[in-house]
Write a protein that binds this DNA or RNA. Structure first.
Lengths: 176, 176
DNA sequence: TGACTCATGTAAGGCGTTACATGATTTT
DNA sequence: AAAATCATGTAACGCCTTACATGAGTCA
């Protein structure tokens, strides 16, 4: 699968949860998938046009009262399942903070410490957000999507906790 | 700082460790920074041309016996330190595996399990690699860059361990 | 000699964001 | 009425990889 298809997977997947406008699709992606996914209008609207021309989504309503909504078709659901099962190529990572730390000799000890302290603070803040989401999620136990939301949430929590442990270790290493 | 500058930081930083050809710069980036950074020739050579025209790097030798080398100039070292200290914008993440798990209801339980088991295997393999690198690094204790290499290595280890913990948790969640 | 590695570069194209333009609907 | 939000779209641009073209040096 090309990376092109990834946006279509995200869009089609979003619409599989409930029919939405392109606008609220983006809001939903930011709010719900924000810690591991991002899409911009420049991707979403062309993707919706493509998906519509392939018959995988359909417009309901004509923007009369509160904008139009796109809904997934049955062909779209079949295509979504097929795309989800296909292998994917991991995007090559580029971590600007680690790049700076690697050249830490030139950045200096204080600069490195600042980077690490900031990263630790970010991770702590993210953990607070995740705790809030987890509390909200406890209400909707019978939603079949909740389990999977919890799994991706746990990924964010694990990653943030790893940052806490790592920054502590790195700060100790820095002073040695 | 624009993201454009990131390649120049990586290139200039690499040359601050030792003079190299564009070719070996890429080899070095893959081997040493591979778990958190990537560059392709299509980025490296234009970056070297830019840096040369700004007087931040200089060619030594004319490709006589074994290719030319680029070395950082004193102006380049000053610029590198300035760039390292500037704030950076984190690249928005796109994790294709988490996207698939989020829509796990349509992927099915077996598909999800396969994703998680694969991710766990990848993390285990990475931890073995990191252990090898750590053993090799134990020899070069007096190199001033080693400490910073260890810090970025620890980041990779922490992230991989987090994946192990998370996949175990997620596999249990999946069967509940 | 033939194969392989080292080395430099470019062109095409996919990926992705930002900023802008436009207008309807809703809220204050 | 003014301001904010909802909504759709596009154009320009930056980022980044892949594939190709080219040639020198090394090694079997």
């Amino acid at each position: 699968v090309k990376r092109t298809a990834q946006t279509q997977v995200a869009v089609l997947g979003g619409l599989s949860i409930e029919p939405m406008s392109g606008y609220s699709l983006r809001q939903g992606i930011i709010e719900t998938l924000g810690h591991f996914w991002s899409e911009s209008y420049g991707q979403i609207y062309p993707a919706l046009t493509d998906l519509e021309s392939k018959g995988l989504v359909r417009r309901q309503g004509q923007g009369r009262t509160s904008g139009s909504r796109f809904e997934i078709t049955s062909a779209g659901l079949i295509q979504l399942k097929a795309w989800l099962a296909e292998p994917f190529e991991p995007v090559p990572q580029r971590n600007a903070m680690l790049l700076r730390l690697f050249f830490g000799r030139h950045l200096g000890q204080d600069g490195c410490r600042r980077l690490l302290v900031d990263a630790r603070g970010d991770a702590e803040r993210r953990l607070v957000e995740y705790a809030t989401i987890r509390a909200e999620l406890a209400a909707a136990t019978n939603d079949p999507d909740t389990k999977f939301f919890l799994i991706t949430l746990a990924a964010g929590e694990a990653a943030s906790k790893a940052v806490l442990a790592w920054t502590d270790e790195a700060l100790a290493l820095l002073d040695s």
